[in-house]
Every structure is written in structure tokens, then in C-alpha cells.
């Protein structure tokens, strides 16, 4: 209800900027997961090494399979 929201909003009515305990991941992992499904496909992330390592880690922990993603 609009009225309720106005009451609950902080005094300064500022948009909350900081993201606390996020539950979303970043965009590239979506692409990585999609292309990993293609047999014998190799995904190469064009970015810092950490990006590919984290996505590997997330995939490994999720699928319980060794996953390779190049950087």
C-alpha cells in the first residue's frame, strides 16, 4: 500500500545504496553455466583471474563435479 510505504520510509527518503548480504550473483556466471552445458565446450572468461576461479568454485560446490573455466 502506498500510504504504508511512506510511513516506513526513512526521514530523508533516500534510496538505500549499500547492498547487504546479497543473494544474487554476477552476470557472467549465467553465461558460463549455460555454455558449460554444451558437450566439450570450454568457457573462457575475459577478465581477472579471480572471476574465473570464483565461478569455478561456485560451480564445483553446486554440481559436485570438477569444472574448468579458463581466464
Amino acid at each position: 500500500m502506498p500510504g504504508e510505504a511512506a510511513v516506513q520510509a526513512p526521514a530523508r527518503c533516500r534510496v538505500k545504496e549499500v547492498n547487504e548480504n546479497q543473494c544474487n550473483m554476477c552476470m557472467p556466471i549465467g553465461g558460463v553455466v549455460a555454455f558449460k552445458g554444451i558437450e566439450n565446450a570450454m568457457v573462457l572468461v575475459h577478465g581477472s583471474q579471480g572471476c574465473s576461479t570464483y565461478m569455478r568454485l561456485a560451480n564445483v560446490e553446486h554440481f559436485n563435479e570438477p569444472v574448468d573455466i579458463a581466464s
Partner: peptide, 30 residues
């Protein structure tokens, strides 16, 4: 940084605390 940097390093250590648990809260500028 972008959200991914915070997501993948959220609470990554098995470190225990005897008092505050604030370090386990992930803050990102997203």
C-alpha cells in the same frame, strides 16, 4: 565493485569469533 566480487567472497573463511559477528555480513556497493 560489482556484486559478484562480494558474493563469491562472502564469509569465505572458517574463522570463528568470540564477540562481534559483523565481519560475516557482506557489504557491497553493487
Amino acid at each position: 565493485g560489482p556484486i559478484g566480487c562480494a558474493t563469491y567472497t562472502m564469509d569465505i573463511r572458517g574463522s570463528l569469533s568470540s564477540s562481534s559477528e559483523l565481519f560475516r555480513t557482506s557489504f557491497s556497493t553493487d
